[in-house]
Nucleic acid binder design. Structure first.
Lengths: 248, 248
DNA sequence: CTTCAGTGCGTACAACGTACACAGCGATGT
DNA sequence: ACATCGCTGTGTACGTTGTACGCACTGAAG
C-alpha cells in the first residue's frame, strides 16, 4: 500500500529486497535461531564492551545477525532485557560451600557483588530494576537469609539485616562506578591525575572557607584512592551492627 | 534555503510565523527571561508531577514558554540539568542547629535524605550523577564530616564512615522507590494487595523447595510493609559499626 | 497435502537530544 | 547620537531511539 514511497538507492541490494535477490539466499534459514540464552549473552557482551548505553534493540539485533524487531518475540521490551542481563551475570556469584557463619556468607557475597558490578559497570546504570527477582538473585538472597535465620533473629530483622547489607553494597558500588566513569570521561587515569586536574576548583572551594572539614581530609588523608579498603570499612560497620543485634 | 519544504497547516498561526503575525506580538519581549533558577524550578516541577522520564528538553521548554533549544544557553546538556535539579531539592536538607553529636547529625541527614528521595522519586532514577558535587551537597557533606572529625578518627576513616552511611541511604531509598514504582505500575495500592497479586508466582516458587528461608520470612514476618522501620534498622547498624570504631 | 502456531522481517512513527545558523536586544565605546 | 558587539532566544534539521503492526516463512501436526 505504501510501498511506492521508497526511493531507489544507488547501492547494490540493501535498499531493494527484490525477488531476484532473495532467490540468491542460500536457504531460508532454519528458524528458532534466537533463544533467551543467546539474547542475554549478546546483550551482556555489548554492554561489557561498549557500555550500557550501547545496548540498543537495534545494536542487539545486529550482533545477533537478525532484524531489529526479532528479539521482541522473546522479550517484552527493554526492561525484560535488563532483567535477563542482570540474571545472567549474577550467576557468577557463588559462596564457598564451607562458609557457614552468617558473617562469612554475607561478607563474601558483598565483596563478590562489588567485584561483579565493577566488572559490569552497566549494572549500576540500570533504571529501577535493581530489585528484579531473577532466579539467580533469588538464590543469592536465599543463601544469605538462611545464614542469618539460624542466628535466632526474628524474621523481620533477618530481612532488614540482609537488605541493609545489600543496600550498602549497591550504593557503594554505584558511587564507585560513577566516580570511575567520570574520570574515564575526562581521560584521567589515576587519582593523582584527577586531583591535579581538579586542583583549581578545589583551591577556589577551599578559599571560601566553607569546607574546613573537607579541607582537612584533602590535606591529611592517606588512602584517598583505596576504594577497596573503604568498601571493606563500610561493610564491616554494617556487619558489626548486625552482629551486635545477634548478641555478638 | 529549505523553507519551501514546509506544508501549510490549517491552524491559525503556529505554522506560519509571518511578518504580520510577528507584528502583532505586544513587544519583542525583554531578554534574560531564563535563569538557572527558573530552569531548575521548572524541571523539578515536571519531574515531581510527571516523573523523571518526563523531563525532556522539549517539555521543559514548553513549561518555560520558550523554544526547545533556549535552555541550552544556560545548561550544557541533560547532565547539567540533572545536577541542577539535584542541587535544588537538596537545599531542603537541614540539620537542627542544636545537634552536635556526630550520631545525631548523621542520623538526621540520613532520615531526611530518605524522605527527600521518596518525595522526589526521580532522584533514584538518575544516570550516574549521584555523586555530582553541587553546592548544597557539598554543604551537607561538610556538616557530616565535621561532626565525625571531632571524634578522633583518622581522616580516611572519617570519609569512609561518611560514605558508608551515604551509600546505605542511597541504596536503601533507591530500592524502596523501585518497589513502590513497581507497585504503582501494576496499580497495587498496598502491600497486601501486592502480595495477593503475586501469590500464584510465590506459591510456585515455594513449591520448588529451593527457598525455605524466604518462605519462613513470608510466613512469619510481621513488618513486611514497614519500610521506615527497616530503614532505621539498617541505619542504626551502620551507625553502631561506626560508633564501635570511635571507641563507643 | 493442508493447516497452524510460532518465529523472524520490514516498514513506519513519534519522540528524543542536540548541532548550527540566525535574529533581536542591551550595553558599550566613540 | 550612533555603530558595534556579545549575549540570549529561535527555527530548522538530523540521526537515533523504542516499539506497534502486519506480513512471510517455517516445521510439525492433522
Amino acid at each position: 500500500m505504501a510501498v511506492a514511497k521508497k526511493k531507489e538507492g544507488e547501492e547494490s541490494g540493501a535498499e531493494a529486497p527484490s525477488l531476484w535477490e532473495r532467490m540468491e539466499r542460500p536457504a531460508p534459514a532454519p528458524r528458532t535461531s534466537l533463544t533467551l540464552e543467546r539474547i542475554a549473552a549478546a546483550a551482556v557482551e555489548i554492554a561489557d564492551e561498549e557500555g550500557g548505553a550501547a545496548v540498543t534493540m537495534r545494536r542487539l539485533a545486529t550482533k545477533l545477525g537478525v532484524a531489529p524487531m526479532a528479539a521482541y518475540r522473546h522479550v517484552n521490551g527493554k526492561d525484560d532485557l535488563w532483567a535477563l542481563m542482570i540474571d545472567r551475570v549474577s550467576r557468577e556469584l557463588t559462596v564457598p560451600d564451607g562458609a557457614t557463619d552468617w558473617r562469612d556468607v554475607l561478607r563474601s557475597y558483598a565483596l563478590q557483588t562489588r567485584e561483579l558490578m565493577l566488572a559490569h559497570p552497566w549494572m549500576a546504570v540500570m533504571p529501577t530494576p535493581v530489585i528484579t527477582l531473577t532466579p539467580s538473585r533469588m538464590a543469592v538472597a536465599e543463601r544469605q537469609l538462611a545464614a542469618l535465620a539460624v542466628c535466632g533473629l526474628d524474621a523481620d530483622s533477618v530481612m532488614a539485616a540482609f537488605r541493609a547489607v545489600t543496600s550498602f553494597v549497591h550504593g557503594s558500588a554505584q558511587s564507585e562506578i560513577a566516580v570511575r566513569e567520570y574520570q574515564e570521561r575526562h581521560g584521567w587515569t589515576s587519582g593523582d591525575e584527577t586531583r591535579r586536574a581538579l586542583a583549581p576548583q578545589m583551591v577556589y572551594l577551599m578559599s571560601t572557607g566553607r569546607y574546613p572539614a573537607y579541607e582537612q581530609y584533602a590535606l591529611s588523608a592517606a588512602r584517598k584512592d583505596d576504594r577497596a579498603w573503604e568498601f571493606a570499612f563500610g561493610l564491616d560497620c554494617v556487619l558489626d551492627g548486625i552482629a551486635r543485634r545477634l548478641g555478638i
